[in-house]
Design a protein around this nucleic acid. Structure first.
Lengths: 244, 244
DNA sequence: CATTTTTTATTTGTCTGACATTTAAAAGTC
DNA sequence: GACTTTTAAATGTCAGACAAATAAAAAATG
């Protein structure tokens, strides 16, 4: 963790990399205190602002946290699932919006992953998760609900399904896929009829989950995916006609 | 993007958040140039080092890139799939190592996701991907291969399978799950016999993929998961006995 | 002696000002 | 017109200073 090439460019990036390496390799364990900024500046033979820039890089990745005052300093942070969630969601969202990923591609990925959860969720879902899903279905049926709120409820419904698998790693991985889709979904106008169809499918999923019937969940998800993609195609079609 | 509360703590975090928001919301598009550090310092009414800390936070997330010289500055970065991969891999790796996620939990998540790819891969796999998998199987059969190299080849094999689905979003999502498992897998000592069994299953997967037989891939993956978890249990058992 | 208050030292957070380095464009030169 | 030199703008780095928070040590108080 001491090495630093003579290349006097991007010093803060190099220092951040060195410390990150020490954390990943286990040399610095959770809650370990890093040397003070002044000491690090001494060790790396750079100025304190440079060290600070390096530390901020690490803080941005939730790798460290800082505390002021005596016996304060920078500490190795235990990366929580929540931190990882939110990082993954912004990364996924930007990835989709900046790289012109087609709706179909994103949709396919999302439902493929979600279907992977279905068998586990059928086995392990709790009454709480089922209740959450029923509540979201109820909300989705409210008249006068905005498209954004409908989509947000849709996300909550599917997150409950994913959480039903009872595997935090799966939940974390899928958070990105499900939530990153929301901006794309928001571009769809949900007519009363399409909402009705989606709610019917959601109800089928909830019923199947209650009955712990994995195959039925899978079937409903396949139909939901097909229907969602059809809706997106219709929107694209309508836009094309409007352009003429 | 101008607002900043009077709370004079974590100014750089607040500024980073404001700029990040502007990027996510689309107010700042890809390749747009941010104001110079001096201008930002003026706008936010802070000093240049504070602005710099904020920019380094964003750079750490690959949200911006900087360029020196005249007509240089900070530019909104197009988040590439590669950048997202590597971020996700380190995040996933740390999440697993810091939160004492059990081998079973991680393994379950990984294979659930991988099985989600199988039907798509059966349909779309290219000859290149198949060749990669065959080559990795060949490497795995080499005598004298270290456990680390065996695991690395295993990762490469499974990544080729995942890439076979031809969906970059899926590949990105799964990169974390597959690669983050490697440190955990490295703790397993692969005997000649267990390597033989794994290679046999890999061969079955490759054969099934070549024949575009999704069910056969799924079956082999289920067996591979069961076998991997059994190996891990054996290692744990051996350790427990050693402790007595 | 025990408890509370005050002081002090340490550490991060921020600011000011300066210089180095890189780089593209403008100015100059042949 | 093509090439070279100069210049200006921007990031990268440094040094030193002060503010603010905080915990431990010291002092005061009962």
């Amino acid at each position: 963790m001491k090495i630093d090439p003579q290349n006097p460019a991007d010093l803060s990036a190099q220092i951040a990399q060195a410390i990150k390496q020490a954390i990943v390799s286990g040399e610095l364990i959770v809650d370990a205190r890093l040397p003070s900024e002044a000491e690090l500046a001494d060790q790396f033979q750079v100025s304190r602002p440079t060290v600070r820039e390096a530390l901020k890089r690490l803080a941005a990745q939730s790798l460290i946290r800082t505390q002021r005052g005596a016996s304060g300093g920078a500490f190795v942070n235990r990366l929580s699932f929540e931190d990882a969630y939110s990082q993954q969601i912004t990364t996924s969202t930007l990835l989709l919006s900046m790289n012109a990923v087609s709706f179909d591609t994103a949709c396919e990925a999302r439902y493929a992953l979600e279907r992977a959860c279905a068998p586990l969720a059928a086995e392990r879902r709790t009454p709480d998760q089922l209740a959450t899903m029923r509540a979201e279905i109820f909300r989705q049926a409210q008249p006068g609900l905005s498209d954004e709120s409908f989509c947000a409820s849709d996300v909550a419904f599917h997150r409950a399904l994913v959480d039903g698998a009872g595997n935090p790693v799966l939940s974390y991985q899928l958070a990105g896929a499900v939530e990153a889709m929301q901006p794309l979904m928001n571009m769809i106008t949900f007519t009363a009829r399409s909402r009705e169809a989606i709610i019917a499918l959601h109800t089928r999923i909830a019923d199947a989950l209650e009955a712990r019937n994995a195959e039925a969940i899978d079937e409903a998800l396949v139909e939901l995916e097909a229907y969602t993609r059809q809706l997106a195609r219709d929107v694209a079609e309508r836009r094309r006609k409007q352009a003429d």
